[in-house]
Simulated assay, not measured.
Amino acid sequence: MKPLRVQPVKKQGETISKGHKNYELMLNLQLGIRHSVGRPAPATSLDLKASAFDPKEKVWTKFPPEGSKHTPPHQSCEFKWKDYCPVVFRTLRKLFNVDAADYMLSICGNDALRELSSPGKSGSFFYLTNDDRYMIKTMKKAEVK
C-alpha cells in the first residue's frame, strides 16, 4: 500500500506583511477591535432596542502612537477608531456564543490578516483571519447608513 501524500491547502487571499500597502490599516483594525471588544460594558440583554442599530450609536477613540490613558502605544500613525453600534455587535457575539478572548486572539493575535481582492465597486477591503473564522469588511460612510 502506498502512503498518502497530503497537499497543504492554499489559503485564500494575500497575507499582509510589513511593506504591504495596507499593513498600517491592518494594524489599526487590530488595535481598534482589541480596544472595542476588550472595553468593559454594561451587561446587555439579548433584547435590543431599535435605537441600538442607529449609525449615530458610535464610540470615537483617538489612537496616538505614544498611547493614551485609554489606548496602548503602537507603531502605526495616529488614527481615530469609530466603533459603530457597539451594543449590537456585543449582543451578536453573545447570541452566537463567541468568546471575546478567542475572537480577539483570532483577529488580533500574532498571525497577520489576509486581504481578499474586492470584486465590488465600493472600494471596500475584505480581510480574513488566519484561522478562517472571521472576515472583516471596511466600509465607506455612505454604506454605514
Rank of each mutant, 00 (worst) to 15 (best):
K137V: 01
P119E: 08
A112G: 08
I107S: 03
F89Q: 11
R93F: 02
H70G: 05
L105D: 06
G120P: 04
P73R: 15
K82T: 14
L95K: 14
K69H: 08
C85T: 15
T138Q: 07
K58Y: 06
K69L: 10
W60C: 05
L116T: 03
W60K: 15
D131A: 03
L95Y: 06
K62N: 09
F125V: 00
D111L: 14
V98L: 10
L113C: 05
T71Q: 10
Y103I: 00
Q75G: 12
Y84I: 10
I136S: 01
K58T: 06
I107G: 04
I107V: 11
K121Q: 10
S68A: 12
R93P: 00
L116I: 06
G120N: 14
V88I: 08
K121C: 06
Y127E: 01
L95Q: 08
S117E: 11
F125S: 02
P119V: 02
M135G: 04
F63C: 13
E66M: 14
D131Y: 06
K62E: 09
V59A: 13
T129W: 00
D83C: 13
H70K: 15
P65G: 13
K121Y: 04
M135C: 09
G120L: 11
K58V: 07
M139R: 13
S124A: 14
R93Y: 02
Y103W: 02
F125W: 00
F96R: 03
A100Q: 04
K80T: 09
H74V: 12
L113Q: 08
M139N: 11
M104A: 05
E66V: 11
S68I: 05
K121S: 10
K62F: 06
K140L: 05
N130M: 14
K69I: 07
T129G: 00
T91L: 07
L95A: 06
G109H: 10
L95I: 04
K80A: 09
L92S: 13
H70A: 12
K62Q: 07
L95T: 03
Y127A: 00
E115Q: 11
H74M: 14
N130T: 08
H70P: 01
L105R: 07
V59K: 15
F79H: 14
D131Q: 06
W60H: 13
V59I: 15
V88G: 07
N110V: 05
Y134E: 05
M135I: 09
D99V: 02
V88D: 03
D83F: 06
N110A: 05
D99T: 01
S76Q: 09
V59D: 12
G67S: 13
K137P: 00
F125G: 00
I136Q: 01
D132M: 03
K140V: 02
M104N: 07
W81L: 13
W60P: 02
V59H: 13
E78H: 10
L116C: 03
L92D: 09
S106G: 05
H74K: 14
C85V: 10
